[in-house]
């Protein structure tokens, strides 16, 4: 961030942009499709398990189970195979921050 070289008013704007970004509800690229089935916000009537707010380690373990075929699912085994370990980690961390 180059804010320090700008006048104060500009720095304020940039700082507020930066803090907005930190609290941003925007999902990492891979995660934005997951919310089509696993809602980011609560209150949806569905038997699809809720994963928002779950620890990243747990989500990673479950995704790895689907990816390696250890765990069977109706659809998750087919989907998890499309993601790299790094993507799974980033998505799991994002979901852990959602409530």
């Amino acid at each position: 961030m180059r804010a320090t070289s700008f006048p104060a008013a500009v720095a304020v704007v940039l700082a507020s942009i930066a803090s907005e970004a930190a609290a941003s509800p925007v999902a990492p690229a891979g995660a934005s499709s997951c919310t089509g089935c696993h809602a980011a916000s609560p209150g949806v009537d569905t038997p699809i398990p809720r994963i928002a707010g779950r620890s990243a380690a747990e989500t990673v373990a479950q995704m790895q189970g689907f990816k390696t075929g250890q765990r069977k699912g109706t659809v998750m085994d087919r989907l998890a195979k499309g993601y790299s370990d790094a993507e799974i980690q980033a998505i799991a961390e994002w979901y852990a921050q959602q409530k």
């Binding site: 089509g36 089935c37 696993h38 809602a39 916000s41 569905t46 038997p47 109706t74 659809v75």
Partner: peptide, 20 residues
């Protein structure tokens, strides 16, 4: 039983996506 499960998930998907 898996077909029945997917039918339930289908309804859940509809609620989730229209909610979003």
């Amino acid at each position: 039983s898996a077909r029945a499960e997917e039918a339930l998930y289908a309804a859940g998907w509809f609620n989730t996506i229209t909610g979003e």
